[in-house]
Design a protein around this nucleic acid. Structure first.
Length: 623
DNA sequence: CTCGGAATCC
DNA sequence: GGATTCCGAG
């Protein structure tokens, strides 16, 4: 585990894939993309742009070339590379932003799952899209945003960055063939060097971004005293990185050292990914102060995080009576694309985006605790999909009986439109989450991938989804791929990409209740117990469901299973009320984070990620 | 440009 | 499993 020094250090970065790293020789394309994305040097080739997780390949040929160099596939071209990218669609690692050329969007949630299956995405959800925060500028930097990050990451990665821009150029130019050992790798390395130098735009961004959030102080991940001043865990202004967890290492620098990412993960199973500070509930945390002010901040932060990251509202349970100040919700409509003004809160953009869609939500307080819509069928399933879907749905519905109540609530609330459908496959992760707000996203598939602004109302959404599915089933045998319509996409994943939805305040306040519990009754207070129970039920149901249903996508299954496991643990914990005590390693994670003490730091994690990434790049050299 | 099937490689 | 390569289709 980590030493006290690393209290929180739980995971490396999120995207980091242990397997691929050190030992494994092959770098995965998405990882490579991420690498490029984080380097300023390549910002003219590929850069974050648009929504969270969205990036644009400005120079397809170059990217292909780089990729080819990395993989020693001189014949690589964009066509091939893009094919590889398309394979990620099914995996949900990536999505295509329709209508935008060479523009794709990462589904960080998925990535995390992929990389850290044991993590419970469901509840805590990874930082949704942790993409770059759109600052007004077009590109965001991925990881290294903070100086500290830079340092830490750079240090580990490589020696001092001595690479000069010249070198970079050279590298780039020279790259293409594998023959040259230096080629691709060198390029990346150089890039890293650049980062080290601190050339990153982050600084610039920093300037642009708002200073710091008050509530952030609350959540500082690092225990350090200094932490108070620091920005909170989510998207840090400092870091433009897409990952919410931006690394700002604490004062100490991130772990300096050599934790292997893998290791890091193990130790602190919980929280790490939780993007939101929420997880670090002050109450539990050792450093929580009871100042009203702090509390306020905390709550606010929490709310925000919830909004942004789909965190479970459970955290709020602690303060049932407290009304959380709403994070700033700018215009409900669509805050202009992304610009973020993040004056008040850096989150704004995320909120804003979501808000657009969120309006509806507000109207219906409790809708989203479960998945309303059927998951996208796998492409393969599409063919047979319809039949399967039906079957699954039926089975699920039965299983859901317990939760049927829940279902009612939404209806009661009002939005008749929503069809509650058992989720057939979709990502169970989400299902599992039940409690989380995040669901909304899922539900909401719409993406603003293409249109930031445009959101379909939720109810609408649901309908669409349903229809969608049908349409797919009926219509073309193929059924449109999930992405075909930005708005429609049923993928949860997309949510991921999307900015988190913002639940209504009310829901936030008593989210749990509303969410899962019975409709009418939402007794806001003292939900804890009920919650737990519900949770349990939920589980059982889920398990059951799983058992019965053969769900489709293998992935989903996987995820689900994992999620369940996590849930169980979580449930166990919650029931037991155990804090993180020993940490069960492994699972639980995010969810746990909600209840647990201050999470480690995501920043760290991210920084690690960066490092890892860097290392990977290095390691994967040698053609 | 984008999509995704199919075969193939590692 | 994760591409890579090729390719027809939209």
């Amino acid at each position: 585990m980590k030493t006290s020094a690393d209290p929180g250090f739980a995971f490396p970065d999120w995207a980091y894939k242990p397997e691929s790293s050190p030992g494994s020789r092959q770098i995965q394309l998405w990882h490579f993309i991420l690498e490029l994305l984080r380097k300023e040097e390549y910002h003219d080739v590929i850069a974050w742009q648009g929504d969270y997780g969205e990036f644009v390949i400005k120079d397809p040929d170059e990217v292909a070339r780089l990729w080819g160099a990395r993989k020693c596939k001189p014949q690589m071209n964009y066509d091939k590379l893009s094919r590889a990218l398309r394979y990620y669609y099914n995996k949900r690692i990536l999505h295509k932003t329709k209508g935008k050329r060479f523009t794709y969007k990462f589904n960080f949630n998925k990535l995390v799952l992929v990389n850290y299956p044991f993590i419970d995405m469901g509840s805590g959800r990874v930082p949704q899209s942790a993409p770059p925060v759109p600052t007004g500028s077009s590109h965001f930097r991925f990881p290294p945003s903070t100086p500290s990050d830079v340092l830490s990451s750079s240090e580990e990665l490589r020696s001092p960055g001595m690479f000069s821009s010249v070198a970079r150029r050279m590298a780039r130019g020279s790259v293409s063939d594998c023959s040259d050992g230096t080629s691709a790798n060198s390029e990346l390395e150089e890039a890293v060097g650049a980062d080290e130098r601190g050339i990153g735009p982050e600084r610039i961004y920093r300037g642009l971004l708002p200073p710091r959030l008050p509530h952030d102080s609350f959540f500082r991940i690092y225990p350090n005293p200094t932490g108070l001043g620091r920005h909170g865990p989510r998207v840090h202004p400092d870091s433009l990185s897409p990952f919410p967890v931006s690394p700002l290492p604490g004062p100490g620098g991130i772990l300096a050292q050599n934790l292997s990412p893998a290791l890091s993960m193990t130790p602190t199973p919980h929280l790490p990914y939780t993007p939101s500070p929420s997880m670090s509930s002050p109450m539990l945390g050792s450093h929580f102060s009871f100042n009203p002010e702090d509390m306020k901040h905390y709550l606010q932060a929490h709310t925000q995080s919830v909004y942004n990251y789909h965190l479970s509202p459970r955290a709020f349970l602690h303060y049932p009576s407290i009304i959380i100040p709403q994070p700033h919700r700018p215009t409900p409509e669509k805050p202009a694309a992304h610009h973020l003004h993040c004056p008040p809160l850096p989150l704004s953009h995320s909120l804003g985006q979501q808000l657009g869609g969120g309006d509806e939500r507000e109207q219906h307080p409790s809708p989203f605790k479960f998945k309303l819509q059927p998951p996208p069928l796998g492409r393969k399933q599409r063919d047979s999909g319809s039949s399967l879907a039906a079957a699954s749905s039926s089975s699920q519905s039965s299983s859901f009986t317990g939760s049927s109540q829940i279902i009612n609530s939404p209806l009661a609330a009002g939005p008749p439109k929503i069809k509650v459908e058992p989720i057939s496959d979709i990502e169970s992760d989400e299902e599992v989450e039940v409690t989380d707000i995040s669901e909304e996203d899922e539900i909401y598939h719409s993406d603003k991938d293409e249109h930031d602004d445009i959101f379909t109302p939720r109810a609408h959404h649901y309908h669409q989804l349903n229809n969608h599915h049908q349409a797919n089933g009926n219509g073309s045998s193929l059924s449109a791929p999930p992405h075909s319509n930005p708005d429609e996409d049923p993928d949860d994943d997309e949510d991921v990409f999307k900015t988190p939805a913002t639940p209504s305040i009310s829901s936030l306040t008593f989210p749990l209740i509303n969410l899962k519990s019975e409709p009418g009754q939402a007794a806001p207070i003292s939900p804890c117990i009920p919650l737990k129970l519900r949770f349990k039920r939920r589980w059982s149901e889920d398990q059951k469901m799983e058992a019965d249903g053969e769900r489709d996508e293998a992935e989903d299954k996987k995820v689900r299973a994992e999620a369940e496991e996590e849930k169980r643990e979580e449930a166990g914990r919650s029931m037991g009320e155990a804090e993180n005590g020993g940490g069960r390693a492994g699972a639980g994670s995010v969810i746990l984070g909600l209840m647990l003490p201050p999470p480690p730091t995501q920043r760290r994690a991210s920084s690690e990620l960066q490092r890892a990434t860097a290392q990977l790049s290095l390691e994967n050299t040698g053609c």
